[in-house]
């Protein structure tokens, strides 16, 4: 397995995807139509990578693309939904066909599995999921949860096991060459995912100087020591959006959801936007400069 050495964190998208082996356990950033490292996901698919296992909170886009390309083996998730557009078509069909194994959590419980890992604890107690099928039906993770009373007060709690994915794949606003990563707007579960994962790859809209990062250190979500590799990928979340950079592409989302209705039409989508374009810049040319400019954020509103 390739390892990126310190001081050479800026790599290409192809190099970043090459770091991720088949069958890796991934956790991927994203919430609804934002923060999704979709240029990286497309490159993973283009390179033929697959057989992935996911631990997921809101990375509906990455999960649906991987499922639609037949690259997703199993997932523990709290929610995959294209907000405003309905269910994730490819993921739903893959689970219904028995091609993807799923094990469900709530948002707070799945995140708490990363928090446990981030804090160096074997597990984390929560007060959610109790009494429901999220506890009773655990096809993958029977050994990852346990009900037990608080040893100090006796209150009933659910303990969830620490989760340490092999990789966190993250899309963020900007970073410097040392891998200090800043995110504008809400930060989803990026920090918890990155602190839990063994290795962290970040794609960003902008590469800036270390001085620029240090002028606004309160915005640094991931300090460089957590981050193995950084890739400069403008519009790297498209068709999802990035707050203060660009809005999500409603037109393209509708196109994607329509294409996802059947395996045949989704195969055509992948041909057009993944296999049929050699790299991310060819993808952007296909989307077109006019559309990309229309999506640019208004600096006052941030979208």
């Amino acid at each position: 397995m390739t390892q990126v050495s310190h001081g050479q964190k800026l790599i290409s998208l192809a190099e970043a995807a090459a770091l991720v082996p088949d069958g890796a356990h991934l956790t991927i950033s994203g919430f609804a139509h934002s923060l999704a490292p979709l240029a990286l996901v497309r490159e993973l698919i283009r390179q033929g990578k697959g057989n992935f296992e996911l631990t997921s909170m809101g990375d509906c886009w990455a999960a649906d693309m991987l499922a639609g390309a037949g690259r997703l083996k199993r997932t523990r998730l709290s929610n995959y939904m294209f907000e405003g557009f309905g269910r994730c078509p490819n993921f739903s069909r893959a689970v219904e066909a028995g091609e993807v194994e799923a094990d469900d959590y709530s948002h707070f419980a799945i995140t708490s599995r990363w928090v446990a890992a981030a804090l160096g604890l074997p597990s984390m107690p929560v007060r959610v999921m109790l009494g429901t099928d999220l506890v009773r039906k655990k096809p993958l993770d029977r050994d990852a949860i346990a009900e037990a009373p608080c040893p100090l007060t006796g209150e009933p709690l659910l303990f969830v096991r620490a989760s340490r994915p092999d990789f966190a794949l993250v899309h963020a606003s900007r970073a410097d060459a040392e891998g200090n990563v800043q995110v504008f707007g809400t930060v989803s579960t990026i920090e918890e995912q990155a602190r839990a994962a063994r290795r962290v790859i970040v794609t960003v809209e902008e590469i800036v100087s270390g001085q620029t990062i240090r002028e606004q250190p309160e915005s640094t979500l991931l300090p460089g020591f957590l981050v193995e590799a950084v890739v400069h990928v403008p519009y790297g979340a498209h068709p999802a959006g990035m707050f203060r950079h660009y809005n999500f592409d409603r037109q393209h989302v509708e196109h994607y959801v329509r294409a996802g209705k059947s395996p045949e039409t989704f195969r055509q989508y992948l041909e057009a936007y993944v296999f049929g374009v050699p790299d991310h810049y060819a993808y952007l040319r296909k989307i077109g400069i006019r559309r990309l400019m229309e999506l640019r954020a208004d600096p006052w509103w941030g979208y």
Binding site: S78, R87, E101, S106, H107, M129, L134, P139
Partner: peptide, 21 residues
């Protein structure tokens, strides 16, 4: 059936958390 559903829905999201707490 959960393992092989007729219709796979989006999942809890924060709903279980909200309703629990």
């Amino acid at each position: 059936d959960y393992r092989r559903p007729t219709v796979r829905l989006p999942g809890s999201g924060g709903a279980n958390d909200i309703a629990s707490l």
